[in-house]
Design a binder for these strands. Structure first.
Lengths: 142, 142
DNA sequence: TGCGATTTTATCGTGCGCGATTTAATTTGC
DNA sequence: GCAAATTAAATCGCGCACGATAAAATCGCA
């Protein structure tokens, strides 16, 4: 018997992640954000003034992806990028007033997505934990 | 309380899908394939001679992604692309001898990935089904 | 103090994804 | 039997991802 893509857990993750991005898309379009940009802003709304590396550890991206993304957020007037005075290797990302204000408008998105899944919150959280555990095992074995 | 990326199911999917691709990467590098190319070949190994659209429905990609990907597979000598005689709008993708031969070398990959997850096969299949169900609900609501 | 090693960010090239549009072939309706 | 609508693939532009590498600042240690 020959496996096809729908048989495979890797494809389930792959297609579900894309479907999730598509579910977010109309909501994020209203804010002028892409999905990775939204993840970065979530990290900054929780704690402003993080370095590129700190953000990268949260959203699992490196400077080769984050630097251009952050420059786009800066050109949209949502963040400022400034070298740290103490350690000039690091660049601190600080929300502008407009960047902070966007949090209010983004607030309803989470509930809207939960509703789109049609699942109960406990079921969603349980599934999230299983997926996260799978991810961590894959990383550990890599 | 402010949500951070690790709290969210969307980020669990996002980061787990990337971790899965990273787990495949060393195995696929040996075959000279990318992960989406591998998915397309899986579909063709299961049924050769599919059209671009049929492949797209299986791997959930459209011609704007598939056309260049298939051209790269063609330039590697793994497939041939030929207009269908009956309906010249359609392009049929046919494996070359080298493309078929690659299936043998790819065969151990699945077991290797299952092993990297550290999970039992029944648990993996159950998780796959939950993730697939979530994906389908997201698509239906979109 | 000075110099090699390490850390942090940036740069470059390639390959997805995908929205929007285009081109060409086929089908539909009158 | 032919024009309009539909369908299939291709093209274009942009924004991730990421491997590889580079540049600059800091650290460690003799």
């Amino acid at each position: 018997m020959t496996l096809t893509p729908p048989d495979m857990i890797c494809f389930a993750l792959y297609s579900a992640a894309h479907a999730m991005q598509q579910a977010y898309k109309p909501l994020l379009d209203d804010l002028g954000l892409t999905y990775p940009q939204y993840l970065v802003l979530m990290a900054l709304w929780a704690q402003d003034g993080q370095t590129v590396g700190e953000i990268g550890r949260q959203v699992q991206l490196e400077s080769n992806t984050l630097t251009p993304l952050l420059k786009r957020l800066e050109s949209q007037g949502l963040v400022n990028r400034r070298r740290d005075d103490r350690d000039e290797r690091q660049v601190r990302i600080v929300l502008t007033e407009a960047g902070r204000a966007l949090q209010q408008r983004a607030e309803p998105i989470t509930a809207c997505i939960v509703e789109k899944t049609g699942m109960s919150l406990p079921d969603l959280l349980a599934l999230r934990d299983q997926i996260t555990a799978l991810r961590d095992r894959l990383r550990a074995g890599g």
